[in-house]
Simulated scan of single mutants.
Amino acid sequence: MMAGSIFLFCTWFLWIFTTFFMDKRNQKRTEYSIYLLLAIVLCGLNWEWQHVRFSILPLVVLVISFFYTSRLHWKKSMYCIVSSFFVMLAYITYELMAIIDPIWVFIPGVWLKASILFILVILLHRNIVCQILILSIGSMMGDIVLSFVLRSYQMNYSIGSMHFFDSFMLGMLGMISLFYLKMTLARWEQYVFMLEKERKNNV
């Protein structure tokens, strides 16, 4: 599978969902659509500094994520930053282990990395907004730090490659899917409760 195909497919899918299927009363709907289109446009833009190749998109995602994190209550904001640090360490550890001993990567690396980050993030926080912020900051910072670690060993590593965004978007899509699954189950449970209550009242 071509690098970046998962990212582009998931991003387009989310853009279609937010644009045409999300509740129109949601004030964030247009904002989400703009961010997703921005991600599609910026994912192919790169620049090089001191022989290190950067993608523009991770830097933009970091700025936006830190902006929204700063708007949270200070306790929640600090918790997100600390959680992001643990996600960053997990990301770097996974990548280094995959380089040192690749035999333990028993399933495609993109899916395995996405699964590890997804499980870690949902264990660290229950709120979907904080989960997205933690995943964004942690994985982006992890990719940047990993690049400089590998550079010290004369190994070239591109920051924000399409392989990176494939796993990042899979983790993001997993969290969003889990959030809507919980919402659907909660509404269904409420609907069943109302039916049961109505049935008892009619008896």
Score class of each variant (00 low, 15 high):
M1I: 06
M2V: 09
A3Y: 06
G4H: 05
S5Y: 10
I6S: 01
F7Q: 06
F9M: 06
T11A: 10
T11I: 08
I16Y: 05
F17S: 09
F17K: 08
T18N: 08
F21D: 02
M22I: 12
D23I: 11
K24R: 14
R25C: 13
R25E: 15
Q27N: 13
E31L: 14
E31M: 13
Y32L: 08
I34A: 07
A39N: 06
A39C: 10
C43D: 11
G44M: 11
N46S: 11
W47S: 11
W49K: 09
W49F: 11
H51S: 14
F54G: 04
S55Y: 11
I56V: 11
L57H: 06
P58S: 02
P58W: 03
L59F: 12
L62P: 01
V63G: 04
V63I: 10
S65P: 05
F67K: 09
F67I: 08
T69S: 03
T69I: 03
S70F: 06
W74M: 07
S77N: 02
M78F: 01
Y79G: 00
Y79S: 03
C80D: 00
C80Q: 00
S83L: 00
F86C: 09
V87P: 00
A90M: 06
T93G: 10
A98G: 02
D101Y: 10
W104E: 08
V105M: 06
V105N: 04
V105H: 04
P108Q: 02
P108A: 00
V110S: 07
W111R: 05
L112W: 01
A114G: 09
A114I: 01
L117N: 02
L117M: 10
L117F: 01
L120N: 03
L120V: 04
L120I: 04
I122K: 05
L124A: 06
L124S: 06
C130R: 02
Q131C: 11
L135A: 00
S136L: 04
I137L: 04
I137G: 01
S139Q: 05
D143N: 06
S147N: 09
L150R: 09
L150G: 08
S152A: 12
S152C: 10
Y153D: 11
M155Y: 12
N156S: 15
Y157K: 12
Y157I: 12
I159Q: 08
I159K: 10
I159G: 08
M162I: 09
F165K: 02
F165P: 03
G171A: 05
M172I: 04
G174Y: 01
I176W: 01
I176H: 02
I176Q: 03
S177V: 09
S177D: 08
F179K: 13
F179T: 12
L181N: 12
K182M: 13
K182Y: 14
K182E: 14
L185A: 12
L185S: 13
A186Q: 15
R187L: 15
E189R: 13
Y191I: 13
F193T: 14
F193L: 15
M194N: 13
K197T: 13
K197L: 14
R199M: 15
N202D: 15
